[in-house]
């Protein structure tokens, strides 16, 4: 089921030797429509030695990310991640638009909706609302300019009703809560 005016947030977290992930789909008010999380995976030290960095990539991208995206029932119109390494696999697996989103310390741009090139390739600064610093938004390589523009307009529309980065923090809180359980 595809929900109109919805954003998907995805985190694949690797702390204390365990990897886990969660996805949260919200409407433009930030109200959850779908939330999925994985059990943590703890590869042994021996497995880490045997497979090296390939293990981490496999667990994050092939296992956690694909499993989450496969399980989500309410498909968002735009997937957002806060880890640049996830951006390309997210785009390839999610089959919908994807972007990396992070805060910046840049001075506000002139008007809401304005876009300015950032230092990194495929990244821009986006003034999503009038009450915060511009956001750093990165798109997967080979994203067409009009596609990036549409995604930026979509984010500006959502920012009228919610704080765009806030759901990332909510997922982290959910992780803490699940740990306590």
């Amino acid at each position: 089921m595809a929900a109109s005016n919805s954003l998907g947030y995805i985190i694949v977290d690797g702390v204390e030797g365990q990897i886990r992930g969660a996805s949260l789909v919200v409407d433009f008010r930030g109200i959850p429509l779908d939330f999925r999380y994985t059990d943590p995976i703890r590869p042994s030290r021996l497995e880490r030695v045997l497979y090296g960095s390939a293990l981490d990539t496999y667990l994050r991208e092939d296992l956690v990310l694909q499993s989450l995206l496969g399980a989500v029932e309410v498909k968002p119109q735009l997937w957002l991640c806060n880890d640049l390494d996830l951006l390309v696999p997210l785009r390839e697996t999610g089959k919908v638009r994807a972007a990396f989103l992070a805060s910046s310390s840049h001075a506000p741009l002139e008007a809401v909706g304005n876009i300015e090139s950032a230092a990194e390739p495929n990244a821009v600064l986006l003034q999503a609302d009038a009450v915060s610093a511009p956001l750093r938004v990165a798109f997967p390589p080979n994203t067409k300019p009009d596609e990036a523009q549409q995604a930026a307009e979509f984010l500006v529309e959502a920012a009228k009703m919610m704080e765009l980065l806030e759901p990332f923090g909510r997922i982290q809180k959910a992780f803490l809560s699940l740990n306590e359980d």
């Binding site: 969660a22 959850p32 779908d34 939330f35 999925r36 999380y37 994985t38 059990d39 667990l59 296992l63």
Partner: peptide, 12 residues
């Protein structure tokens, strides 16, 4: 490495 994905909407 079989992975279980859980639905946590009610908690969220």
């Amino acid at each position: 490495y079989t992975l279980k994905v859980r639905n946590g909407l009610s908690q969220m």
